[in-house]
Write a protein that binds this DNA or RNA. Structure first.
Lengths: 114, 114
DNA sequence: ATACTTACTTACATAAAGTAACCTTATTAC
DNA sequence: GTAATAAGGTTACTTTATGTAAGTAAGTAT
């Protein structure tokens, strides 16, 4: 009846960025270009899903994939301008989580990761 | 080996907010308190999932549920302080989508929703 | 009594995510 | 040459989440 519906751009953007793992992958890449196994280890995501998400994000123009034919081959993932432009979103998200989120249980699994 | 892993608070926050529909529901409630069917219509989400998400968000302390025993009963959902504190995140997200996202196809389905 | 509305639930089919094993190319170790 | 190692995946399979449709309960309205 009125403008109760959501802006379709916003909806589309949210669908891309808020897909499971996508946000964490982008956040991780905001730290700088990284290779597959680095992201895999940092996020504890499976190779299957990481591969899938990176392809999707590359397709959306958010992530860039660079192949360095060294030995062994090095493949680095980084953010495009479009991806880096998400930095303020994640900065605000970090602020929010630092103020409002607290952890429940198992705070001390591995002393090294403190 | 080093601090390559993600801040667990950030991860938890992302898990809550970036769950499918959660972001859009919060964004919708940032416009003001609303009842179930209003959100359902605005987001085109099914009752089943809306019910599920609202319960989860209520459990996380982001959404508040108020029952007004009028006739017929009116139930309003609104954001708590924790929920409203997400406003800057969505403001930045809106900025990003307005600059970087463009729509593909079917731009003119219903002239009323323009 | 029947129909209507809001706010949900239940049941079931489909899609996405999680897990583990396997593959490919290349390099060094024996 | 054969085995072992490594990066960057892919395949096959199980579990969980999502989508869809129909049904329920409380409270009028007719």
């Amino acid at each position: 009846m009125n403008q109760t519906s959501v802006c379709p751009r916003f909806e589309k953007g949210m669908r891309i960025v808020s897909k499971r793992w996508a946000g964490l992958i982008i956040h991780q890449l905001l730290k700088g270009p990284q290779r597959f196994c680095t992201i895999e280890t940092a996020l504890q995501i499976s190779g299957r899903l990481l591969s899938e998400r990176l392809k999707e994000l590359e397709h959306e123009g958010i992530v860039k994939r660079d192949v360095y034919p060294e030995t062994p081959v090095r493949i680095e993932y980084s953010l495009t301008d479009k991806g880096r432009a998400l930095a303020p979103v994640f900065r605000e998200m970090e602020k929010w989580t630092s103020v409002w989120i607290e952890l429940d249980e198992e705070p001390a699994a591995d002393p090294l990761t403190k």
